[in-house]
């Protein structure tokens, strides 16, 4: 049923959440991202697609400055979040990442209990006044991660004991717990089986109500299923960006067409 879920075209113009202008990324001497400008809307799922090594993950990691942890990586250009440059010297990446959460390719629950996994973010950011408050946040986040019913009886057990799909939803719940405004997902389903993938995709669609979601994906079908906007990256360039339905039915650039018809990739 999911592959038929082609999203309705965005009816009304939504608020711009992230505005990237002329972004360049260098890894040492390698020019990994070239002149990328893109506007990411609020309450929308934006998909980044492209062949492997095209820079889509690198660009995604620029959006919450995860690239800062890599010594040789250098970012130029402007990325504005609600009009504020996130690469401004005054910006603390720690504060930024609380606003722009991230979910990774492989589920990476901490070797702690399920409860502590979720509570980790709220604790470090000081989102709960007391234990009861924290309990509420944990429950709310797990519900949003669509995993509450499966784990509510074993919150004190280690998160690493869950199945792959449950782990990934736990990680999504963990990211949601810090009340971010943007959720970045780096191929969140690539390590999951089809059933778990379906569950996560359903979750992503629900999250769109409250967040701006950016998802990097390898699978064009997945992009078509979950996203409203799609950006196609090729060799570090943003080739085409637009409504998902338009990209998949009527691509402008010949490279996009080759990719979605399977001639390159």
């Amino acid at each position: 049923m999911y592959d038929t879920l082609i999203p309705e075209n965005a009816v009304d113009q939504k608020e711009i959440k992230i505005n990237a202008e002329d972004v360049q990324v260098y890894y040492g001497d390698t020019h990994a991202i070239k002149d990328v400008s893109v506007k990411i809307e609020d309450k929308t799922v934006t998909a980044f697609i492209g062949p492997s090594g095209c820079g889509k993950s690198t660009f995604l990691r620029c959006l919450n400055r995860m690239n800062d942890t890599i010594d040789i990586c250098r970012v130029e250009g402007k990325i504005l979040l609600d009009g504020e440059d996130i690469y401004d010297k005054k910006v603390d990446p720690v504060q930024l990442r609380a606003k722009v959460g991230m979910v990774f390719q492989k589920p990476n629950p901490f070797p702690k209990s399920i409860y502590d996994n979720i509570a980790y973010g709220p604790r470090i950011h000081g989102l709960a006044k007391n234990k009861a408050d924290l309990d509420v946040i944990v429950e709310k986040s797990l519900r949003r991660g669509a995993i509450w019913d499966e784990v509510k009886d074993r919150l004190d057990q280690p998160g690493t004991g869950l199945s792959g799909g449950q782990q990934q939803r736990l990680c999504i719940a963990r990211a949601v717990a810090t009340e971010p405004e943007v959720l970045l997902m780096d191929e969140p389903c690539s390590a999951l089986d089809p059933i778990a993938t379906a569950q996560v995709e359903e979750l992503i669609d629900e999250l769109r109500q409250d967040y701006s979601v950016v998802i990097v994906t390898h699978s064009m079908q997945q992009a078509a299923r979950v996203s409203q906007k799609t950006a196609f990256f090729h060799l570090g360039n943003l080739v085409e960006f637009g409504e998902t339905s338009q990209i998949f039915t009527n691509p402008v650039d010949p490279r996009t067409e080759s990719y979605i018809t399977g001639r390159i990739g």
Binding site: E84, K90, V91, Q95, K99
Partner: peptide, 13 residues
């Protein structure tokens, strides 16, 4: 937290 600007560090940060 959410009303504050990214350009200013809040007390906790």
């Amino acid at each position: 937290k959410h009303t504050s600007s990214l350009l200013q560090q809040d007390v906790r940060t």
